[in-house]
Amino acid sequence: MEKKILDVRGLSCPQPVYETKKAIEHPSFDVLEVLVDTKTALENIKRLLDSRKDIQYTVEEREDYKVTLSKLMG
């Protein structure tokens, strides 16, 4: 199954939580990865998800992007 990504970084209130709400209420919703950049938006989204008995989630703290590179050998 394909994991959808929802990027709500940099959006004003209430768009991060509202877009998440729209996404989980969409008929095709299955698995979703939401990219969030403020604690406030994260709290709002967690409050939404906590109010739903039918959804489980985990939160992973990490940088927005991670690029790994190295010098070519020989």
Binding site: R9, G10, L11, S12, P14, Q15
Partner: peptide
Amino acid sequence: FIKHGYTLGRNY
């Protein structure tokens, strides 16, 4: 308006 897609876009 928000429900109909209003947004000022992202900050960076």
